[in-house]
Design a protein around this nucleic acid. Structure first.
Lengths: 218, 218
DNA sequence: TCATATAATTAGGGATACCTAATAATATAA
DNA sequence: TTATATTATTAGGTATCCCTAATTATATGA
């Protein structure tokens, strides 16, 4: 049984790894958790003692199979609760993340599975992220960031990298959600912004930061 | 904003008061929380500083209006989550309490109200306890403990005082739930046990401890 | 290469919330 | 009333998880 804090570390390390970061350093973790590298090192020692990860200065932090399983179960709960909050309680896209951050740490035998069943075994959460199954498996479709999309082609929005209310509210304002079709009209080399067309309708220009946080699929 | 622990203290003190205990002492609180009187005194000081309660050796602990409001909001969430777990997720009577103990501390604007609406504004939780409304009001029907019931009369089960899995499982075994009709057949003066008839069907003898923890209504 | 910047680590603390053991205060009972 | 038991309280300590500041190690660049 892990504490809330331990679970958050495992989850963050799992996510950093998924993002393709080769060496997961104390500084990177501290940045992701918005806390101090010194605190991170304390916790890495603790999680190392518990055999949930291995940390070496040269290789960074690596989750053990055990640590990975814990991280995935937390992520599973997080994403299931997000679906619940959006579909059943009527919360908005940009609010579900923060509540799920709390709910993901509630433990009880079968809770995730019963919730999963109640929700009809959803495959994706409201942000387009796949929900791990009870045995920890996750479907994965090929997703690219909008920045890598090609001019002239049309893509479907399948997810977001940044789940902050600021970004999600901005998307809502632009009427962009999971499933929205986006056509790349032009790329501006000067500042890497892009001109896009939303649902064959609205033309708008989005920044580099924007295009790096929207996940699309051809 | 209170910590989990602070909320648990407020809730317990509220419940002890509801149970009619005139002087809520550190020892009584420690017993209810299964911890140490010394720890309780620490916390009473802290909650006193926060103006959530007043503690005097002679009068015991008394919640301020503020402290009471916090306690009621925690109780509201607890009972709403219990309904959710039982009705929506399919948990059993004896399991919902422990999970709700964790869920009751999740805070987010409107969460309790949205949950309340989703559940169809239930008036009672699975143990027969009234669910406080959004403004902190609680319906209350007259309930007596089975021990005080009269021989020959029939009562309806409306609640339990003890919500432990042990007691609830025993009730399940006896096929007693909220709404079950119980007729008092005989009272045994020797050990204060009672012979009761469940739903005009099964005759059984129950102990004094049992009859002190089942709430009924004529 | 050597200086400088950045990252990792250690040392020492603080807050929370619990504990045990000792002491002080209050009840209870002979 | 006085001895004894029960409660309340204080003192001091532990574990968790965070912090700052100082130090050491590693990169990076002139």
């Amino acid at each position: 049984m892990q504490t809330f804090s331990e679970e958050n570390y495992l989850k963050i390390i799992y996510n950093l790894d998924k993002q393709g970061i080769k060496k997961i350093t104390p500084t990177a973790i501290a940045e992701a958790l918005d806390n101090n590298p010194a605190s991170v090192i304390d916790m890495l020692k603790k999680l190392g003692d518990k055999k949930l990860l291995a940390y070496e200065k040269t290789k960074g932090a690596k989750l053990t199979p055990n640590g990975k399983a814990v991280a995935i179960s937390v992520i599973r709960k997080h994403r299931l609760w997000e679906v619940f909050l959006l579909e059943k309680l009527g919360y908005e896209w940009d609010q579900v993340h923060d509540i799920a951050e709390q709910l993901e740490h509630i433990h009880y035998t079968g809770l995730a599975d019963k919730l999963d069943k109640f929700l009809g075994f959803p495959k994706y959460d409201p942000h387009g992220d796949p929900i791990p199954s009870a045995n920890g498996e996750m479907v994965s479709i090929s997703r690219i960031i909008l920045e890598e999309a090609n001019v002239g082609k049309t893509y479907k929005v399948v997810g977001v990298k940044d789940t902050s209310p600021e970004f999600l509210q901005y998307l809502k304002k632009l009427k962009i959600g999971i499933g929205t079709k986006i056509t790349i009209k032009e790329k501006i080399p000067f500042d890497n912004s892009m001109v896009i067309m939303i649902e064959k309708n609205i033309l708008t220009t989005v920044s580099k930061v924007f295009s790096q946080n929207l996940l699309v699929h051809e």
